[in-house]
């Protein structure tokens, strides 16, 4: 009796498992995803941004790039610093470039704030640690995020040496006070988000929102976006105009945001 009951349960279990596995296999197939590139899309071997700190600092309270980015991407405005979401923002020079700061640094620089955003590292630690491939490096170097895939473990936040990633501790929608833009999705609670170099704008042939507005407001060349592998590109040209530094270069992450100082 006991043996046969056990055998029955085993068979029944296997049958249920089999039925469950058969369902996804028997799924129908529809049309095909085209491999063609989108016409007019901006393409690059390796995207990068050059920030001309000298020009940026001349406009101390300027928030043009920050507002443009945060409005375009439905980034919520959360007052509590513990739960803030930020894609691009300003940090004191001495904290951003810890290794470069010293007590005798030019006062003009030491007390100033510089622009920080995701560095779209060539060797991104966030990508290395993510357990679900919810974040990865695209062929053009952009470190992308798939909020559908993200399980919200925050390992990428622990791995990022720049504090560039934000977690949605709560539903962000009530905090989007500037009016939600329906053409760009918001995020849900429990997932990580960050700067994407405006992949949705590159697709339409436009530069990232921050770069576009910055060059209008602060003058051309304050922020430059381009292909760092192309010797004739604007970013390569800008880097020749002065001395440039990157954040925490010693960690081997190879950041792709360059600061002209």
């Amino acid at each position: 009796m006991d043996g046969s009951r056990r055998a029955f349960l085993k068979t029944a279990g296997c049958a249920i498992l089999g039925a469950g596995l058969a369902a996804p296999i028997a799924r129908t197939v529809g049309g095909a995803v085209s491999a063609d590139a989108t016409p007019g899309e901006l393409k690059a071997g390796r995207w990068a941004i050059v920030v001309d700190v000298r020009k940026c600092l001349q406009r101390e309270n300027c928030r043009a790039c920050i507002d443009a980015c945060h409005v375009a991407h439905n980034v919520p405005l959360i007052k509590n610093p513990a739960h803030e979401i930020k894609w691009i923002w300003k940090e004191p020079f001495k904290d951003t470039f810890e290794a470069e700061a010293h007590p005798h640094l030019d006062k003009g620089l030491a007390g100033q704030h510089v622009l920080v955003l995701c560095n779209h590292c060539d060797n991104p630690p966030c990508v290395r640690v993510c357990p679900t491939k919810a974040t990865w490096k695209r062929a053009d170097g952009i470190v992308m995020m798939d909020q559908h895939r993200c399980i919200g473990c925050r390992y990428c936040i622990a791995g990022c040496p720049y504090g560039s990633r934000s977690f949605n501790w709560q539903d962000p929608r009530p905090f989007i006070t500037t009016g939600i833009k329906p053409e760009y999705p918001t995020r849900m609670k429990g997932v990580v988000e960050k700067c994407t170099f405006c992949t949705e704008r590159l697709l339409k042939g436009l530069a990232p929102a921050c770069v576009e507005v910055c060059n209008k407001v602060a003058g051309p060349g304050t922020m430059t976006f381009g292909d760092i592998r192309d010797p004739g590109s604007d970013v390569v040209r800008m880097l020749k105009t002065g001395f440039s530094i990157r954040r925490k270069p010693g960690l081997g992450t190879e950041p792709q945001i360059f600061y002209l100082v």
Binding site: P131, R149, I151, G152, R154, M188, G190
Partner: peptide
Amino acid sequence: DMGQPTRVLNV
């Protein structure tokens, strides 16, 4: 600790 616990099997 997960933000999206229903997706745990993604791992």
